[in-house]
């Protein structure tokens, strides 16, 4: 119990070290979600609405990549960004930018695969009506993305959940440098191994609270959407 009490005290007192870690974690994960959304949503829509040779294979690979092991992604990005790697001259290894790149790679397949499924399901429903209304390809994509927006937000949250909770990729490419690349998950792993349970528990509470708050907001938005849009 003393550890839990100390942890709560750290959170409630607004401990600067703890909240610096929280801020960096949110910055990295939210940036990764934005980057992955910019890539994954159009790609998912494209696969949903077009027919091409090998499409089934693309869908199978996309779905399989949802289960990408974070440590493998971390290792691949490490090899790319290390001094001897092809992108070593960019000097991104052990920076928040490298962590964003790794998390983007990790969650882009999740966003692309889930948005592909969402948009394809809606397309099968809307296809005849949109054809009858003579809506062109760009208009179709815009309509489907807009009308599926509440489901797509849930997709983005799934990506955020994956990014916020993963530890393997960011610890490899970020290095867990105090005050620079230390995130909630890497700090929890480190502090637990050091025996500093109050800080680890405090970060755990904050991480859980963020995940619950984000999902509650998504649920609320979905409910409001259903009420007004059907």
């Amino acid at each position: 119990m003393p550890d839990q009490a100390s942890a709560l005290q750290l959170v409630l007192s607004g401990d600067p070290a703890l909240f610096a870690i929280v801020r960096l974690s949110l910055l990295v994960s939210l940036s990764a979600v934005v980057c992955a959304a910019l890539i994954g949503l159009p790609f998912g829509a494209l696969v949903a609405l077009t027919r091409f040779p090998g499409r089934a294979g693309v869908i199978v690979v996309l779905n399989a990549l949802m289960g990408l092991p974070p440590v493998v992604v971390g290792l691949a990005v490490y090899l790319l960004l290390s001094r001897s790697g092809p992108l070593g001259s960019w000097g991104l290894l052990f920076t928040p930018a490298a962590m964003i790149v790794a998390q983007t790679i990790l969650i882009t397949p999740i966003i692309a695969a889930l948005s592909r499924q969402t948009i394809e399901d809606l397309w099968l429903e809307y296809r005849d009506e949109l054809a009858a209304m003579n809506v062109g390809p760009a208009g179709r994509i815009a309509t489907l993305v807009y009308d599926a927006r509440f489901s797509l937000i849930t997709t983005l949250l799934a990506g955020f959940g994956r990014a916020a909770a993963e530890v393997g990729a960011v610890i490899i490419v970020g290095g867990n440098i105090d005050g620079f690349t230390r995130t909630m998950t890497t700090a929890i792993a480190l502090e637990t191994s050091k025996g500093d349970l109050p800080l680890a528990l405090g970060l755990g509470f904050v991480l859980l609270a963020i995940v619950v708050a984000v999902n509650a907001a998504a649920w609320g938005m979905k409910r409001v959407g259903e009420q007004y849009a059907g």
């Binding site: 429903e125 809307y126 009506e129 009858a132 309509t143 009308d147 599926a148 007004y228 849009a229 059907g230």
Partner: peptide, 16 residues
């Protein structure tokens, strides 16, 4: 452009 159809089971867009 000047033809329209009402399907047997029309689909409502997810809007008002």
């Amino acid at each position: 452009l000047r033809r329209a159809i009402l399907f047997q089971r029309p689909v409502m867009l997810r809007r008002s």
